[in-house]
Design a protein around this nucleic acid. Structure first.
Lengths: 255, 255
DNA sequence: CGCACGATTGATTAGGGTCAATAATGGTGG
DNA sequence: CCACCATTATTGACCCTAATCAATCGTGCG
């Protein structure tokens, strides 16, 4: 069931059959959510960890005066806050953008999983660190890049993340969100995002139509975005740790 | 030695004498670094975890064309990437802003610490999650807030963080950074930051002089910043977990 | 076929950038 | 203690990116 999730973790480290089986079992409690629904709302206390099986969602925060910032996107295979239980209440909301199929993972299931599978524990660590790295890159994106650079950077990132879970098709990937939502993520207005998109189309960089994005010239797009994929840590970073797997001691806690 | 760090963790959970002793031992290898020095550089592979004992530092990323974004500030008591060893190389740099005294913590010392002290493990988790929450809030800050709101928000955040480690004095706290550095953090030019500061002074909100910040009207400052401190999780969130401390099993890994 | 939402366009404005110069400050050596 | 220098802070003039406001156009879908 959690295809994409497993595939993503395997981009970090090799997994055994047992590992994979254990991960399959996480998707016991599957829920279907309509588009534009809150999955968790700021102030709620976390009940379980959500794993996105299908569809897109986002983290967002809404200011008292109505302004909304989308803080990150969730695509299939993404897990929302593996370790959230330490905190008493959510400081942001998570909402669906499209219809979403998700697995609700109870705390104990995660504890049990990491208890038995050090390699998965490490892979979840990696997942958490990459999520943090993406958030940092978004900070750079909003702080330093111009409209067109920003959008180009987002497209590069999303394409690589989708490719890592097998959701691209050649140079095309899904992009099932509105220009308004793009705008809320880029800290700009939809009017300006619209104009930027037209500029990118005019340059022959992309096609964006029918909720699908085609990248016509990835090299040029990356150059224009000042894109460096290193922060996604997609190069099997886990390989150098695969040797020391014998003990299931708590030495795994931090490794 | 790691005064501020211990004090910060105690804002999350109660610590025993043994806990504190164990934390003291972390500061074995202490280094002094001058101002404007790189502590780690993008591309380096992490050798140890740095704990800031004194002085200010920052995470930053530099784009190929020279633009620099400060991604976060480190103040005394902050720890840089507790779990960084999972990644092969740094995707950003950490540099000092003032002279910095820091403890270099080897990986094994951390493993040993979390092995023996479940409550500390949990507190480190909390630290990691709050750091992520701060990063998200910066995303909102850069994406949605105007110049004056942004700066006001930063001041609110820094003041509370410094108070949590005992570094405020009434309504005053240190702010040992230049307007240029403020500008790199806010995604603006120093010229504009300068003008914004003057506006805040003119409104009677703050005094900023001699590397010290005084907040004359915290309520108004928070209102203008649309500041909600919930993301700092400063309300002893750990209390609800303090009951179940007996076992030192790997159940601690995720709790 | 018509409706509702999303995309697009135009005109105008404003926030913040750029460039360039000047004024304060603080640390240093004599 | 003072003169000097290098940062850092401040100011002014001008420009440009992106916001705002307000229609209008498409199009996917019931």
């Amino acid at each position: 069931m959690p295809h994409h999730f497993i595939r993503k973790l395997e981009g970090f480290t090799r997994l055994s059959g047992e590992n994979r089986q254990a991960l399959e079992k996480l998707a016991r409690n599957v829920q279907q959510v309509g588009p534009d629904q809150d999955i968790i709302h700021e102030g709620d206390s976390p009940e379980h960890v959500n794993l996105i099986l299908d569809g897109w969602a986002c983290r967002y925060k809404q200011l008292r005066d109505g302004r909304r910032q989308i803080i990150s996107f969730f695509v299939p295979g993404d897990i929302c806050d593996t370790h959230v239980f330490v905190l008493r209440e959510m400081d942001h909301s998570i909402g669906s953008l499209t219809p979403v199929r998700l697995a609700q993972i109870p705390r104990d299931a995660l504890l049990d999983l990491t208890d038995r599978h050090p390699r998965i524990t490490r892979a979840l660590w990696w997942e958490t660190l990459v999520t943090a790295a993406i958030q940092r890159e978004w900070t750079v994106n909003l702080g330093q890049r111009s409209g067109i650079e920003r959008l180009a950077h987002l497209f590069c990132e999303l394409f690589l993340r989708l490719r890592a879970v097998g959701l691209t098709d050649g140079d095309t990937c899904p992009l099932p969100i509105t220009q308004n939502e793009l705008a809320d993520a880029m800290g700009q207005t939809s009017v300006h995002v619209n104009r930027t998109l037209q500029e990118m189309r005019g340059m022959g960089l992309i096609i964006l139509k029918g909720k699908r994005l085609t990248i016509l010239n990835m090299e040029q797009l990356q150059r224009m975005a000042l894109f460096n994929p290193n922060y996604l840590h997609l190069n099997r970073d886990g390989a150098h740790l695969d040797a020391n797997d014998q003990g299931v001691s708590s030495a795994q806690t931090l490794s």
